[in-house]
Amino acid sequence: MRFAARVEVRLRPGIADPEGATIERALPALGFEGVRDVRAGRSFRFEVDAADEGEARRRAEELAHRLLANPVIEDSVLELAPVEGA
């Protein structure tokens, strides 16, 4: 079976996010009022071949933890869905 994975990587709470802060500071000049707590992150998409969803999840999570996110500063969230017809 084939599964589509999406991993969102974001800075952990308490880690300064200068990118998010810079975006937030620019918003009033663009007319966006009342927007707060902007945090920048990254999103990765890939497909995994695996026997079942459990195996796909395990491998995708390992990939996210070992490479896509640095656990010292970042958290990751995995979404997984079967690819129809694959």
Binding site: L11, I15, A16, P18, E19, T22, N70, V72, I73
Partner: peptide, 10 residues
């Protein structure tokens, strides 16, 4: 230990 992140103020 630790990590290096983007500089303060980018």
């Amino acid at each position: 230990p630790g990590a290096l992140v983007k500089n303060r103020g980018l």
